[in-house]
Amino acid sequence: MLFQRHGGLQVQVTETVSALQQLAGAALSVELADPVRASLAGYDVLHVFSAINGNHRIIETARELGVPAVLSPLLSPAWNGASALRARIATGVARHLTGGDVQTSFSQIEGALRKADLLVALGEPERAAMRSAFRIPDQRIRIVPNGIGARFFSADGGLFRDRAGLHGDFALMVGAVSPYKNQLGVAAVLAAMGLPFAVIGTAEQRDQGYLRQLQATSGVRYLGGLAHDDPLLASAYAAASVFVLPSKGEVLPLTALEALASGTPVMLTDQSALDLADSGFAFRKVKWDDGAGQQAAIAALVAGKPERKRVQDLVRHMTWPGVARELLAIYQQARAMHAANG
């Protein structure tokens, strides 16, 4: 089901594969594996993205076949020792009541983390979650953040302003429209501030009522979904005065990175692995349900109007070719470790 919808994970997978293919050349073959049609035994290394939705079975099968496996678990930074303890208790109760016939998502994630040869975290908060919640030693974890497409660094806001008719200050949010993403919450904050709110994204059938509520909120301009390679999307990032993403949890959101690459400051949920040193002038993290904190952060970022280049410099080092080089080294490490362990 991975490519039956489109979002940050799909972009991460496709951009990673593309960058690896460009880096590898004739000496190395890199492809998006199809576990329905291809035998996993035919690969030298497997890289699995996401530790949920049954992906633990791919890791288990790789181990059975003797194929090294690298896992990017994409864990929420909200995982910690306390939440893991509750999950372990719930898992134990489920096993007891069903005679071991029921697995929890927690036990599947834990199994995938323990059986992968190496783990790739998107940032220090995700590594901390692996360490504290799942008891994974640091030596098995590597940190490789997402990359950013070069086109976002050269984006111009003129196209979007002309199409959307937004020529003053406005806030932007890009992503699936849903209660988890919390568009309604920040829309209320922005309405109280009198700051227009442009929303790009689609809503699933179950969230159509939520979308109607959002559209009825004062100041909201809903623009529907845009393809990731649509020039209008890059232009929207560059045109906005501030990008907002106060969802209940994010790992390392590409939308926030793309906004920063376009020179636009970002207000992000505090449940995120994205941390940037010396970035307070253009990057603030606030609790998803802290309306007063969100209003203060947005007001400061809009009033500050940081220099575009200075904002871009925060993420200029995050490129997909750089990601590919780091991952290739990790794949080689995984093969060497696997060989050494027999």
Rank of each mutant, 00 (worst) to 15 (best):
T255W: 00
A256V: 08
L257S: 02
E258L: 13
E258F: 10
E258T: 08
A259F: 02
A259W: 04
L260W: 05
M267V: 15
S272G: 00
S272N: 02
L274S: 02
D275N: 07
A277R: 05
A277T: 05
D278F: 08
D278Y: 08
D278S: 12
G280W: 00
F281R: 02
F281G: 03
F281S: 04
F283N: 00
R284I: 10
W288I: 03
D290T: 08
G291D: 04
G291T: 11
G291R: 05
G291E: 10
A292G: 06
Q294C: 05
Q294G: 07
Q294D: 03
Q295E: 13
Q295W: 02
A297R: 06
I298Q: 05
I298G: 01
A299Y: 02
A300G: 11
A300R: 11
L301A: 11
A303E: 13
A303L: 13
G304C: 11
K305C: 14
K305G: 11
P306N: 10
R308G: 04
R308H: 07
K309N: 13
R310Q: 13
R310N: 05
R310I: 09
V311W: 03
Q312S: 05
D313R: 12
L314D: 02
V315M: 08
V315N: 02
V315F: 09
R316G: 07
R316A: 15
R316K: 14
